[in-house]
Design a protein around this nucleic acid. Sequence first.
DNA 1: CCACAGGACGGCT
DNA 2: AGCCGTCCTGTG
Length: 287
Amino acid sequence: MKEQKYEVEITTFGLKDIFECGQCFRWNQEANGSYTGIVKNNVINVKEKENKILFHSKGEDNLDELVTDYFDLGRDYEKIKQTLAKIDDHMRQSVSYGSGIRLLNQDLWETIISFIISANNNIPRIKGIIERMAKAYGKEIVLKKKSYYTFPTTQELAKASVEDLRKLGLGFRDSRVYETTKMIKNKVVDLEKLQKEKDFVSVRNTLLTLPGVGPKVADCILLFSSLKRLEAFPIDVWVRRVMNELYIKNPQENKVKKAEIEKIAYEKFGSLAGIAQQYLFYWKREA
DNA sequence: CCACAGGACGGCT
DNA sequence: AGCCGTCCTGTG
């Protein structure tokens, strides 16, 4: 455990845009506007100062390498935004609204469990459940006299029974998390292999074998974890709403088929469909 | 009291 | 293959 500081100068990096666009659950805003979160076995505080981003951490990993990977700093978001903004006026506006968004490379295991919990659920409650899970089964890190808890490893979470999970407030998701944990622990699904697998459809199909992982959750995992497939296009009620409002215009929104939404998304946005969805979603939900 | 929330799943047609 | 009721819990 060591404390470290690191700073970078980068144009596309908006704290609120990154942490509140719906991709992560373990970051909270401080009174001074900065955000504190837990990444692997590290607590990280992030703040903006003029045109720089300042990181302060306590934990095991080298901070510069950790944030370069986690915040996807190697990717040129300015270029992505330019490409998307040229598509049409909706995209130009949404990119302008969420101009600081970056898609995080979150730990695959943590992302799988987090998004299983997200099913039919809202963000405050999801965050509460994950927080309680971390406190019960993760490891403590103390920074500035405050306790933080790492996301439990597969082995740590495997200690929890279905009843234990129910007590943490998972509701009907308890058995899904329990079964998925068991499958990953026993390498019925091997996450290290999955991380190296190239074929999009094959990775997605493997994710779909996990209890609690349906089409929407699978696409969130593909888009928001270290799998980082920018073409993955999660369709939930909000995206359905936005896509219908902007491109389909069916008066009976609930009758629009998922296949139709997907077709339009890939025609318009191609391999950037997922990240395009994120700008649209953030824009319409916040506004 | 009921509807609904950023879905998945199983049973039915 | 598509449709629909049900699944915990918190909030309005």
